[in-house]
């Protein structure tokens, strides 16, 4: 069981977890979640007023589906759920939330880690930081690519 949602409005990770927990079966012994938040400062320490994530009308959802399905296929998990924001995001708001449920913790940890590494480098978004000093488009870092390569 997997699900991936593109979300254009703020969402509540706690509510997402509560809904996910209701769907997992009796054999599940572990649920791992990760929530990514919009930071109020960029890599250079300058204030970010808004994080803007541009998405593609069709291919962004497809990329999220592909990543969630690959996680469900690759790991021994009972369920995967992910939510990804697009549009204008204020500092402190959730950008991304992933959840993996499994019989034992290792598969759940690894699946959540895998989903995030792929989302950082392959989810079809274009990310811009808007601040008083102007706007900057952000691309994956070398570290992001190294983390992704661990799963190749």
């Amino acid at each position: 069981m997997w699900r991936a949602r593109l979300c254009l409005e703020p969402f509540d990770p706690a509510a997402a977890l509560a809904a996910f927990a209701k769907q997992i079966d009796a054999g599940t012994g572990a649920v791992v979640t990760f929530t990514g938040l919009a930071r109020g400062a960029n890599r250079n320490g300058l204030a970010v007023e808004t994080l803007f994530l541009q998405h593609h009308a069709r291919l962004t959802q497809r990329s999220l589906d592909e990543i969630a399905a690959a996680g469900a296929e690759r790991f021994n998990v009972a369920g995967i759920d992910l939510i990804h924001r697009a549009g204008a995001i204020a500092p402190g708001e959730a950008i991304v939330w992933v959840a993996a449920a499994a019989a034992h913790r290792r598969a759940a940890f690894e699946a959540a880690d895998y989903l995030m590494d792929r989302l950082k480098t392959e989810a079809l978004f274009w990310k811009r930081e808007d601040g008083a000093d102007g706007s900057t488009w952000v691309e994956p870092t070398d570290d992001d690519h190294r983390e992704r390569a661990r799963w190749s």
Partner: peptide, 9 residues
């Protein structure tokens, strides 16, 4: 369509 490098998360 032309796509610059993408970044989610």
């Amino acid at each position: 369509e032309f796509f610059p490098p993408v970044s989610g998360g």
